[in-house]
């Protein structure tokens, strides 16, 4: 198992009230698996993804990725983990507004300490795989939404991560573009045997997944495998 969550809780205290964003989540994800995460807004999907991605830490419970316990890791280890082990794709793209497409893709490489020359070569290759070579010098605000998400995908994959965490990646795209972006994402992930965790509201998108889980009130309420979906 590449990802193992064991009775994971995430509590927020608002004054004297305690909110359980995650309330005892157990989850195992295998290598190269594609897991779709569904559920109503506020059910804890993003929180779970953030904890798996090392952006957030669980209040209690065990979070292990590739056998390493994330809850014990310090800032530097977590930063390196986010840099090399996982890639994030966000609903709102989160590209650096002042950086060109190429520079955005090269960002994780820069934090990894890769030299400028190698960085730009690797970023160019990354842009090519998402079909954005022609837009390398463009700034994010000179790109369409679909193009921005392609750049974001290239950025998430440039450091060859084992896990891709996509939080409603097509949430800001129209139907036609969504399909194209999904196709691209899935083909890239399959080709590289990357484990993909994707939050989506769209049951149609979930159909691409090998397995899907439904969340409610910080817990996994239902789990479906591909076979039962089809």
């Amino acid at each position: 198992m590449i990802i193992e969550l064991c009775d994971v809780w995430r509590r927020y205290s608002m004054g004297n009230e305690v909110i359980n964003a995650l309330a005892g989540v157990d989850l195992k994800v295998g290598y190269g698996e594609f897991l779709a995460i569904l559920g109503p807004s506020g059910s804890g999907k993003t929180t779970m993804l953030n904890i798996i991605g090392g952006l957030d830490t669980a209040s209690s419970g065990r979070v292990a990725v590739d056998g390493h316990d994330l809850s014990r890791a310090g800032d530097r280890i977590l930063a390196a983990y986010r840099n090399k082990m996982v890639g994030f794709v966000f609903q709102n793209f989160n590209l650096q507004p002042s950086c060109s497409a190429l520079e955005n893709v090269a960002l994780p490489l820069m934090f990894a300490g890769v030299s400028a020359g190698r960085r730009s070569r690797m970023a160019r290759e990354g842009l090519q795989t998402v079909g954005m070579s022609q837009r390398a010098r463009h700034l994010p605000n000179q790109l369409s939404s679909g193009e921005r998400q392609r750049v974001a995908i290239a950025r998430a994959l440039v450091n060859e991560p084992r896990i891709l965490l996509a939080d409603e990646p097509t949430g800001n795209l129209d139907t036609r573009t969504s399909e194209l972006v999904m196709e691209l994402l899935i083909s890239l992930v399959r080709e590289r045997n990357i484990t993909l965790l994707m939050v989506t509201h769209n049951p149609y998108m979930a159909e691409f997944a090998g397995r899907s889980i439904h969340m409610r009130d910080g817990q996994i309420s239902r789990e479906l495998t591909c076979a039962s979906l089809i």
Binding site: G53, L55, D75, R76, L78, A79, A80, R82, N83, K84, F88, N94, L95, Q96, P97, L107, P108, F111, A112, R155, N159
Partner: peptide, 16 residues
């Protein structure tokens, strides 16, 4: 702020 968030998500540690 948001850019700092992105930097952290893509692998920048506090020191950086």
């Amino acid at each position: 702020t948001r850019e700092i968030g992105v930097m952290k998500a893509t692998g920048a540690c506090r020191g950086t």
